[in-house]
Computed example of a mutant assay.
Amino acid sequence: MDAVTARAVLHYVLDGGCRIAAAGTAPLDPAGGELVLLPAATRHRISPLPVAGDAPAPDGHPAPPGRPAPTDLPGMPGPTSPLGPAVRILALDGPGPPARLLSLRTGYDRRTVRPLVSALPRAVLLDRRRVEGAPLLRDTLRLLAAPGRRAGPGDRLLALRVFEAALALAAAAPRPSEAGYPHPGIGRSVAAIETRYAEPWTVDTLAREAGMSRSSFTAAFREAVGTSPARHLTARRIREAARLLAETGLPQSAVPARVGYRSRVGFHLAFRTAYGTTPGEYRAASPRRDRRPLRRL
């Protein structure tokens, strides 16, 4: 992990239910089909759901005699520690039905999503309805949780895709006071940029997506995200372009259109401004690129 890479952790409940408590925030009790996002990889604890009669332990988590100890998960390994498996299945036994979770860890470029992450709580619960309503997120989770599936070199990429989709959903949640947005439309526009970056967006069409006038939208967006809508859109497109160059075999000539650029010259200028190098040089220097063709999920 380099200096601009941050970490995130996600837990998707496959069966049963559990309690997830991150430091400094109220516990969450996700059930089957629900996803918990810890966008800053805060240290957290997973434990069985409390049952009637359980006496709380000093830290607020029920832990009566005979109950399996909660699972403590460090969100941020030490500087010399590996990130750990990108994808794994956690099993949690308790007095009720056992719980199974798909646990994901990923790194991401803090420069491009810091405003979104900083505006969110330390732990965010996405309910089943919202997960099922996001096809990319839903299908990637199902792929990763498929019975008999083996870990592979693409796990880190898939975990990153889950994080980006979950982050967009969390940003668009209709909770502007909690998410830090002055207007719920800002969350919708941020989600559109995060997930639909290849569309021919302009400030005017983003403002319409938000249900706001152009001037009000531009001012509210800058206040909430810390940059202009155009700059944020460019950053998202270039971040995706860098991923495609480093981690897929998509022909370099096809990358600009894939991320929403009609002009190759404009794409090259934007990429060089962001990364200080050309797209070709960036691909050549990427240590973990995968030359296999890109497959859509």
Results as ranks from 00 to 15, higher is better:
Asp2Ser: 15
Val9Gly: 03
Leu14His: 06
Arg19Gly: 05
Asp29Asn: 15
Val36Ser: 12
Thr42Gln: 02
Arg43Asp: 15
Ile46Leu: 03
Pro48Lys: 13
Gly53Val: 03
Asp54Lys: 04
Ala55Cys: 10
Ala55Thr: 15
His61Val: 15
Gly66Trp: 01
Pro74Ala: 14
Gly78Trp: 04
Gly78Lys: 05
Ser81Arg: 15
Arg88Asp: 14
Ile89Lys: 10
Leu90Lys: 03
Arg111Cys: 09
Val113Arg: 13
Pro115Gln: 06
Glu132Lys: 02
Gly133Met: 04
Arg138Lys: 05
Asp139Tyr: 06
Asp139Pro: 02
Arg150Ser: 13
Gly152Ile: 02
Asp155Leu: 09
Leu157Thr: 13
Arg161Trp: 11
Glu164Phe: 13
Glu164Met: 14
Ala165Arg: 14
Ala166Ile: 00
Leu169Gln: 05
Ala171Arg: 10
Tyr181Pro: 01
Tyr181Cys: 04
Gly187Asp: 00
Arg188Tyr: 02
Ala192Ser: 06
Arg196Phe: 11
Thr202Ser: 14
Val203Lys: 01
Gly211Val: 04
Ser213Trp: 03
Arg222Trp: 05
Arg222Glu: 15
Val225Lys: 11
Ser228Trp: 02
Leu233Gly: 02
Ala235Asn: 04
Thr248Val: 07
Pro251Glu: 01
Gly260Arg: 00
Arg262Leu: 14
Arg272Leu: 13
Ala274Tyr: 05
Tyr275Trp: 12
Gly280Met: 12
Ala285Trp: 07
Leu294Val: 01
